[in-house]
Design a protein around this nucleic acid. Structure first.
Length: 455
RNA sequence: GUGGUUGUAGCUCAGUUGGUUAGAGCAUCAGAUUGUGAUUCUGAGGGUCGUGGGUUCGAGCCCCAUCAUCCACCCCA
């Protein structure tokens, strides 16, 4: 049998892990700089926690875990009077847990469950894998890591602004050229309201989100297909055509959305963010009215980050988020507003790979390898290795007294820059023969000289 | 869920109108070198050509099915 792993999952080898950790360390450090605290939640949640939070599509993509023991036990009796399906059971009969789909909903659950221990506003971050039963493709995996930062229990737009700064910090540290796009769900709601289709906001957002991809004519067709009147379609087109700087866009929006209280509130929020931005000197922040994407639970700001670098072929977003006013309400804690974003670590990895953006990490592993010549020599080396490690130097002693060629090849494969050779001669003289692998030069040094060389 | 692409050694891929025992490079292992890696030379192992069926005297190549893969749509990080 050929070994394999499930569709859409990956193994991460040592070389990849070093680079993945570079991304995780970068985001973690930035998050902490802004006072966010880390939590973790279980891989699996009760399906009652997950279901219904991600819309119809999202529910289909949940990985469900079949109950342990005999999942079919007692089902016949349960549905004795009822015809259920050809199989005679419901999914809910045999599965009550599922793998988490994102980190935001488990976080909302966490906040409600731990509300008495939490001091609000609560600033938390979370770096963990999530699972989606999607068809894998470029930049899309069934298991991938999200790096979430959220503030819950504060309505202030300063939180949105702080998240924008975090995005700016992370990507400038990773040296990825990005555009930060923002929009506001309330503006979109206002558009739907003024177009007389208040209940069709999801259809509206799904359609105009595709503007970049399929063009205005197709968007109009799709809206017509969803039952929008031709008058309102013409109107929406006029708004979407607005290009130029955010001030001009907001001016035109103000004229059109004057009859919608929600719309006006949305404009005001965006204006506030842009008014504060000059202090922070974030250049790549853009208002994008076609930005409509986002989970169902977003109610205010929507944020999405796209790669600008021409060497990258990524068109999908590498970070996204927004404000959700009542996610905790579903779990019994109403009137708590939250806002957060999620960095897609795996997509960021793929982008860095594409643009050749990873630093050189060859120096981070073992600094020096002690060759093992036999029991007596190895025992002697043990003390020296201990000494080096105590001084913070990554050192290892080869575990087997095999052929030297093999041990040298090991050092070469692991890109270990120095090799120490200690045989009976060196033990007698108390010296260490050090070979510099890059040049092939060898010399005899004392322990102090070796420490100096390696530091 | 829909449409397409590709499946040959651990990896990247050749393989002629269907014709004998399916190849290369890299990687791995061993030796040349009993205290010296990368470089050089020599050798070895590794394949039911994704799987099952069909056509044929004969199939890696043609046909059907199936599974896997990647890409696009949907949706999304």
């Amino acid at each position: 049998m050929k070994p394999s792993i499930p569709k859409g999952t990956r193994d991460f080898s040592p070389g990849e892990m070093v680079r993945r950790n570079f991304i995780f360390d970068t985001v973690r450090n930035v998050f902490q700089r802004y006072g966010f605290q880390q939590i973790e939640t279980p891989s699996m949640e009760n399906l009652s926690t997950l279901e219904g939070k991600y819309g119809e599509e999202g529910d289909k993509l949940l990985f469900r875990i079949i109950n342990s023991g005999d999942p079919f036990g007692g089902i016949k009796e349960k549905h004795a009077d009822e015809k259920i399906s050809d199989f005679g059971f419901r999914i809910s009969d045999i599965a009550e847990k599922g793998l988490r789909y994102d980190l935001t909903v488990p976080f909302a659950r966490y906040v409600v469950q731990h509300q008495n221990e939490i001091t609000f506003p609560f600033k938390r971050f979370q770096i963990q894998p999530v699972w989606r039963a999607d068809r894998p493709q470029k930049g899309r995996y069934r298991e991938f890591y999200q790096c979430d930062v959220d503030v819950i229990g504060s309505d202030s737009l300063l939180n949105e602004l702080e998240l924008i700064q975090i995005i700016d910090d992370v990507f400038s540290q990773l040296q990825i050229d990005v555009t930060i796009k923002i929009n506001n769900r309330k503006i979109l709601a206002g558009l739907a309201e003024v177009a007389g289709a208040k209940d069709k906001i999801i259809d509206l957002t799904v359609a105009i989100d595709k503007l970049d991809k399929i063009g205005i004519e197709k968007v109009k067709e799709e809206l017509a297909g969803k039952g929008f009147s031709s008058a309102s379609i013409g109107w929406i087109e006029e708004v979407l055509k607005v290009k130029g700087d955010h001030k001009e866009m907001l001016g035109i929006l103000k004229n059109h959305l004057s009859s919608s209280e929600t719309g006006k509130k949305g404009i005001e929020e965006i204006e506030t963010i842009f008014a504060l931005n000059p202090e922070l000197k974030i250049q790549n922040l853009e208002l994008d009215l076609s930005l409509a994407r986002g989970l169902n639970y977003y109610t205010g700001a929507i944020i999405e980050v796209k790669v600008n670098d021409k060497r990258s072929t990524f068109t999908s977003s590498i970070c996204g988020g927004g404000r959700y006013d009542d996610l905790t309400g579903i779990f019994g804690l109403p009137n708590v507003s939250g806002v957060g974003i999620s960095f897609g670590a795996d997509r960021i990895y793929d982008v860095l790979e594409e643009i050749n953006g990873f630093p050189d990490f060859s120096s981070v592993s073992t600094k020096i390898l002690f060759v093992n010549f036999g029991e007596a020599e190895a025992n002697h080396c043990l003390k020296l290795v201990r000494h080096l490690r105590d001084d913070g130097i990554n050192a290892e002693l080869f575990p087997d007294a095999v052929k030297m060629k093999k041990q040298m090849a090991y050092a070469d494969a692991k890109k270990i820059p120095y090799v120490a050779l200690i045989g009976s001669e060196e033990i007698k003289s108390g010296e260490i023969t050090v070979r510099t692998m890059g040049t092939g030069e060898q010399s005899k040094v004392t322990m102090d000289e070796l420490l100096h060389l390696l530091k």
